[in-house]
């Protein structure tokens, strides 16, 4: 039995969940962002993270994608502890999709090349095959015919849709979305959320950090409110309209 699946008191993960986080602690210097955080995301589930700016939503997503060093706790994907330093982080990240607030498309590549970069380099797919999939995916997010465009030639909403397509193209076990509409003006938010709702409808497992309460009501299976470094309150989307803790009520009111 390796250290990875050794049962540890208080840190026992849910092996059936796509993502299972136990006792997570992440700090930057003296500033503790996440502390003893527990969270599960089941197969085909869409979990929405709410919380004030600085509550650790982004840090949690980055920790799950192994972009942050964790002080303590376990992040398990399908029951396997990936925070173990013996686990190859690149292999783990290849199974996850992450979409950033600022799109992070590669400015020097066309949309087609942005989309096919990981399938070709990481997943070793033949170019023709990867490109055919990329064209189909761009069509799905409403960017048909824009394969040759560079990110700089697109609107923010179009760029974010392309970024979602890029994350989806590798068929991730879990799609992480980090405030993907925060950089967009209201007119463009709708088109991105519509795409996410359609992605949701295909059964993609999603963990979404957002401030869009309407989106949370519409697509979330479960809402988790982050406060004081942990999941303060969680439940069905109806808790948005009927908060069980004064902290969630304060967040929704403010």
């Amino acid at each position: 039995m390796s250290a990875a699946d050794a049962p540890v008191a208080g840190l026992a993960v849910d092996p059936t969940a796509v993502l299972s986080v136990r006792g997570l602690r992440v700090s930057f210097g003296d500033h503790v962002v996440l502390e003893r955080l527990d969270l599960d995301v089941a197969e085909h589930e869409c979990v929405v993270l709410l919380g004030a700016s600085g509550s650790g939503k982004s840090t949690l997503l980055r920790a799950v994608d192994l972009l942050e060093e964790v002080d303590d706790g376990v992040v398990a994907l399908r029951g396997v502890d990936v925070t173990d330093p013996r686990v190859d982080a690149d292999t783990v990240r290849a199974r996850l999709g992450l979409v950033f607030q600022a799109y992070n498309l590669f400015d020097h590549l066309t949309l087609l090349d942005n989309l096919t970069l990981a399938p070709r380099l990481v997943h070793r797919r033949p170019r023709a095959e990867a490109e055919a999939d990329a064209v189909a995916m761009l069509d799905r997010v409403g960017l048909a015919g824009r394969e040759g465009a560079y990110p700089g030639q697109l609107s923010g909403g179009q760029q974010q849709r392309a970024a979602i397509a890029r994350a989806l193209l590798t068929g991730p076990d879990l799609l992480l979305l980090d405030e993907v509409t925060s950089a967009l003006d209201p007119a463009l938010v709708g088109e991105v959320l519509d795409i996410l709702a359609s992605v949701r409808a295909t059964g993609t497992t999603m963990l979404v950090a957002t401030h869009e309460l309407g989106f949370a009501r519409r697509v979330a299976d479960r809402v988790c409110f982050l406060h004081a470094g942990r999941v303060w309150e969680s439940g069905p989307p109806s808790i948005i309209d009927d908060p069980g803790t004064p902290e969630l009520a304060a967040y929704l009111g403010g």
Binding site: A3, V8, G10, L11, G23, R25, V32, E35, D71, D72, G73, V74, D81, T83, D84, P85, R86
Partner: peptide
């Protein structure tokens, strides 16, 4: 609230130190 590293964290730290 003080943080007492869990056995998992202690074991990982030891592994990383060995790697270094």
């Amino acid at each position: 609230m003080t943080w007492e590293p869990s056995p998992v964290a202690v074991e990982r730290a030891a592994f990383r130190a060995g790697r270094r």
